[in-house]
Amino acid sequence: MITITAIIRVRQGYEQTMAQALLEVAEHVRANEPDTQGFFISQDEKDPRVFTTYERFTDRAAMDTHNNSAVVARFFGIAKPILDGDVILITANEISTKA
């Protein structure tokens, strides 16, 4: 299993915009990406400008399909102007899970 963790910080006042953009990606994943095993979105309790996604893919092809999709391109079109700093991305091989 390949995973991506993304830590995203938006500028003040754009929390709802980011939440909606991420939820649109999640809906697309749910409906169209059977090899994406999980797409989790979290919003920090103390700083609601910080979002984290955790994505699980069966293999690199599934990850590439997701990353090259129109919905991800649309997401970054929305996200780039409202980001507060760089997105931190960690791509990893999952070594343990509790399902």
Score class of each variant (00 low, 15 high):
residue 1 M to H: 09
residue 1 M to K: 11
residue 2 I to P: 03
residue 3 T to W: 00
residue 3 T to N: 11
residue 4 I to L: 13
residue 5 T to P: 04
residue 10 V to T: 13
residue 11 R to H: 11
residue 11 R to A: 14
residue 12 Q to H: 11
residue 14 Y to N: 15
residue 17 T to I: 13
residue 18 M to E: 14
residue 19 A to W: 12
residue 20 Q to C: 00
residue 21 A to G: 00
residue 22 L to N: 05
residue 23 L to I: 01
residue 23 L to Y: 12
residue 24 E to P: 01
residue 25 V to H: 02
residue 26 A to T: 03
residue 26 A to S: 12
residue 27 E to F: 00
residue 30 R to H: 03
residue 31 A to I: 04
residue 31 A to V: 04
residue 31 A to P: 02
residue 32 N to M: 06
residue 33 E to D: 07
residue 34 P to G: 07
residue 34 P to F: 02
residue 35 D to E: 10
residue 35 D to W: 00
residue 36 T to P: 00
residue 36 T to F: 00
residue 37 Q to N: 08
residue 39 F to R: 02
residue 41 I to V: 15
residue 41 I to P: 06
residue 42 S to E: 11
residue 42 S to P: 06
residue 43 Q to A: 06
residue 44 D to P: 03
residue 47 D to Y: 08
residue 49 R to P: 08
residue 50 V to N: 13
residue 50 V to T: 14
residue 51 F to K: 00
residue 51 F to N: 07
residue 52 T to K: 15
residue 54 Y to H: 02
residue 55 E to M: 07
residue 55 E to N: 09
residue 55 E to D: 05
residue 55 E to F: 06
residue 58 T to G: 05
residue 58 T to S: 15
residue 58 T to Y: 03
residue 59 D to S: 06
residue 59 D to E: 05
residue 60 R to A: 05
residue 61 A to Q: 09
residue 61 A to C: 01
residue 62 A to P: 02
residue 63 M to P: 00
residue 63 M to K: 04
residue 64 D to C: 05
residue 64 D to N: 15
residue 65 T to F: 13
residue 65 T to D: 15
residue 66 H to C: 04
residue 66 H to T: 03
residue 67 N to Y: 09
residue 70 A to L: 12
residue 70 A to M: 10
residue 70 A to T: 13
residue 71 V to M: 06
residue 72 V to N: 05
residue 72 V to K: 02
residue 77 G to S: 15
residue 77 G to P: 08
residue 78 I to M: 09
residue 79 A to F: 01
residue 80 K to A: 14
residue 80 K to Y: 07
residue 81 P to D: 10
residue 82 I to F: 11
residue 82 I to D: 14
residue 83 L to P: 11
residue 84 D to L: 07
residue 84 D to N: 10
residue 85 G to W: 07
residue 85 G to K: 07
residue 86 D to G: 12
residue 87 V to W: 03
residue 87 V to D: 00
residue 88 I to W: 05
residue 91 T to A: 01
residue 92 A to E: 11
residue 92 A to M: 03
residue 93 N to M: 08
residue 94 E to Q: 12
residue 94 E to S: 06
residue 95 I to T: 02
residue 97 T to V: 11
residue 97 T to F: 01
residue 97 T to Y: 11
residue 98 K to P: 07
